[in-house]
C-alpha cells in the first residue's frame, strides 16, 4: 500500500539551533501511528513542519491527502463560539456546515453557541478534533491528545479516534508524550528524542523492549533499547 505520509531526512532549525535531525518516517493510508517523545524531543516542531507552518532546512515532507491538524494545547479561538471555531475549520472547504461534525460528536451540538474558551479541557479537545474534521481530512494529525486531561476523558477521546480510524479508514498520526496512551492506541510507533528518531516498530515490540518506561517516565534515551 502506498504511503500517505512520507517524511525523508527532515532537518528543521530555529536559527542555529537544530530542532529535528534527519527524521524519516512513513505511514500508509488507514494506519494509526504514534510519534512518542519526551518534552523538547521536537514533536511539536515535527507537527508544525508537516502542517506547513514551519519550513524545513532540508529533507522532504510528502502528504498524499488532505490533512486535519489538532495542535498541542487545543489552540482554539477562545473568544469565538464553538460553531464559529468549527466553521473556520472548513476554511479550505466549500462545505462549512458543522452538521457532519455534530453527527460524530453530538455533545458539541448543545454547546454550539458557547464561547470555546469557557469549555472544559476535554470539551475543548473535542472542539479541536471537530474543527480538524471540518476539512474532511484523509489524515488526522493530533499533537498531545491526552495533555492535561483526566484519564476518563482521555479514554473517551481514544475510543472516538479509534472509531474514526476503523470505521472511516482515516489515517491517524498521534504525537504523544504519554507512551502508555500512544502505544495502547496505535499499532506502530516511532520514538523521537533530541530531534532524532531513535527507534521504531510495532507497539507490542516497543513495549516488550522496555521503551515504554523510558519515554513514559520522561527519562530520555538512556533507557531506550535501540533496535
Amino acid at each position: 500500500m502506498a504511503a500517505i505520509i512520507e517524511v525523508e531526512d527532515l532537518v528543521v532549525r530555529y536559527g542555529s539551533a537544530l530542532a529535528l535531525s534527519h527524521v524519516s518516517l512513513s505511514i500508509e493510508a488507514g494506519e494509526m501511528v504514534a510519534l512518542i517523545g519526551p518534552n523538547g524531543a521536537g514533536k511539536t516542531t515535527f507537527v508544525k513542519t508537516v502542517a506547513g507552518v514551519l519550513r524545513p532546512a532540508s529533507g522532504t515532507v510528502a502528504v498524499g491527502g488532505s490533512l486535519g491538524v489538532v495542535l498541542e494545547g487545543r489552540q482554539l479561538f477562545n473568544d469565538m463560539t464553538v460553531e464559529d471555531n468549527l466553521r473556520l475549520g472548513a476554511w479550505r472547504s466549500r462545505n462549512r456546515d458543522p452538521a457532519r461534525v455534530y453527527e460524530v460528536l453530538p455533545d458539541l451540538r448543545g454547546k454550539a453557541k458557547q464561547l470555546a474558551g469557557n469549555l472544559s479541557g476535554g470539551q475543548q479537545q473535542m472542539v479541536a478534533i471537530g474543527r480538524a474534521l471540518m476539512s474532511d481530512p484523509d489524515v488526522l494529525l493530533i499533537d498531545e491528545l491526552s495533555l492535561g486531561l483526566a484519564p476518563k476523558v482521555v479514554a473517551e477521546l481514544v475510543e472516538f479516534i479509534t472509531r474514526l480510524n476503523r470505521e472511516r479508514g482515516m489515517t491517524v498520526l498521534l504525537i504523544e508524550q504519554s507512551a502508555r496512551v500512544a502505544l495502547g492506541m496505535c499499532d506502530r510507533a516511532y520514538i523521537l528524542d533530541s530531534g532524532s528518531v531513535v527507534t521504531s516498530g510495532a507497539s507490542d515490540h516497543l513495549i516488550a523492549n522496555g521503551v515504554v518506561e523510558g519515554t513514559y517516565m520522561g527519562t530520555g534515551t538512556q533507557e531506550i533499547i535501540h533496535d
Binding site: N78, D79, M80
Partner: peptide
C-alpha cells in the same frame, strides 16, 4: 470577518487551518 478575528486571536492555529 471571523477569519480576520481568528488571525489575531491565534495566528498559528489560523495558519494551520489554511487562513
Amino acid at each position: 470577518g471571523k477569519a480576520l478575528t481568528a488571525s489575531a486571536s491565534n495566528p498559528e492555529s489560523a495558519e494551520v487551518l489554511g487562513i
